[in-house]
Design a protein around this nucleic acid. Structure first.
Lengths: 228, 228
DNA sequence: GTCTATAGTGCGATAGAC
DNA sequence: GTCTATCGCACTATAGAC
């Protein structure tokens, strides 16, 4: 798997998320034609992510969003009931999609080593393809409601849990040395997150997501090599 | 060095930063008595950091700050000219203090291995002692002015540069294997940053900063062990 | 040196024309 | 389904009393 093959499979992810949101909230949304709604929702979401990445969701006014999306203030409110609901749409549906993709990719794997590679690559590819989305989720969590914050924390722990399971499986099979799986999973997650938290740095240095993935995998494998 | 010995040396860091700010802006600040000014500035800074960590600097109103600090709106404006200036005070003076402490601690070291250990420990201890400050600087960068953002980026690259220098020195002395120093420094930084970005996680698990530091050092050393 | 009261601004949200 | 015009509110910042 390379980034190019990955992106071909998930090019319509944003549109899919918007369609799902539309279908789940049909009664409340004033627009009735699916094609129109999904198109405009995608524009709204993309504009919101762009503007929020620049100056934060709180600092982004709906007037900014109106100007950037090309929709009027009134039109925006046909798609969501409040600014908070827009935040929720992006958080909830974004996170669900990411979890689903990550799980799907992992299920294709046979060996422990395959799983570890798929975990690192899929996470990095996802955060590359949905860069704004990942950055948004990380930076804006504190603006969420109590319930949403819990959801966000669970999401972090879920990914970490998946890494822990892979490490444990490897230790059981005598492939990896005996290590602190929770701390190791934690720092692996931190290294993967750096890709989208410091995107500007890697861009400036012309490091591609595939190069970063290869480096990370070799770094982790060196640590997990059993001392003979 | 443990966290306990470290904190004893730098207990007055916040107060020192406020005193420095006061002395550099004597003409503009309406309060004239140093003792009063430094005391209230410390309260203001601590309240700002606390509130910003909860909901972000933008979402924190000066009414919130007034309530939390116990100073009236009018009194607050005796210490700074605008909300933006308050942001600048925290950013600029905080960053300078951190750089200074980091450099001081590294200069005490003799061997390459000592330097690497001091780097990890000092960075973690600093981010533990000034947790709110570090989190603030990371999360609020997008609210900074253009010039301030550059300053912030330089600060990130400076720390990374210090790690690169240590790695290069180790490679030259045949202590470390030949590796990509820039990428390695980058992921080491990412792992150190995780300590303050996910403070809630480590707190929940009762992992102390000394335990995290020891784990990180052993992780890095395993990677840097020359294969025989 | 600190307070209260308030001016002026820009926000989120909505009503009603088209 | 989208627009423009506008309301009420909360914000930053300041003026003037104590």
């Amino acid at each position: 798997m390379t980034f190019k093959t990955f992106i071909a499979d998930y090019a319509t992810a944003v549109e899919d998320i918007c369609r799902e949101y539309f279908n789940q909230n049909r009664e409340r949304i004033k627009i009735k034609k699916e094609a129109v709604a999904v198109k405009n929702l995608s524009i709204i979401v993309n504009s919101t992510l762009k503007l929020s990445n620049e100056k934060g969701f709180n600092a982004m006014s709906l007037r900014d969003l109106s100007a950037d999306s090309g929709l009027s203030m009134g039109a925006l409110y046909s798609y969501f009931a409040s600014k908070d609901e827009l935040l929720l749409l992006i958080q909830k549906h974004g996170q669900l999609t990411m979890k689903r993709i990550l799980r799907d990719e992992l299920e294709k794997c046979g060996t422990v080593r395959d799983k570890l590679h798929a975990m690192v690559k899929t996470h990095l590819y996802l955060s590359e393809a949905m860069q704004y989305w990942f950055y948004f989720l990380f930076m804006e969590t504190k603006n969420f409601s109590r319930e949403s914050r819990t959801f966000s924390i669970d999401s972090e722990l879920l990914t970490e849990g998946m890494i822990i399971d892979i490490l444990k499986e490897g230790i059981d099979q005598d492939i990896f040395p005996v290590i602190d799986t929770r701390l190791t999973a934690s720092v692996i997650k931190a290294m993967m997150q750096d890709w989208y938290l410091k995107r500007w740095k890697y861009k400036r240095r012309n490091i591609s997501v595939d190069e970063y993935a290869d480096y990370l995998i070799s770094f982790i494998e060196t640590y997990l090599r059993r001392q003979t």
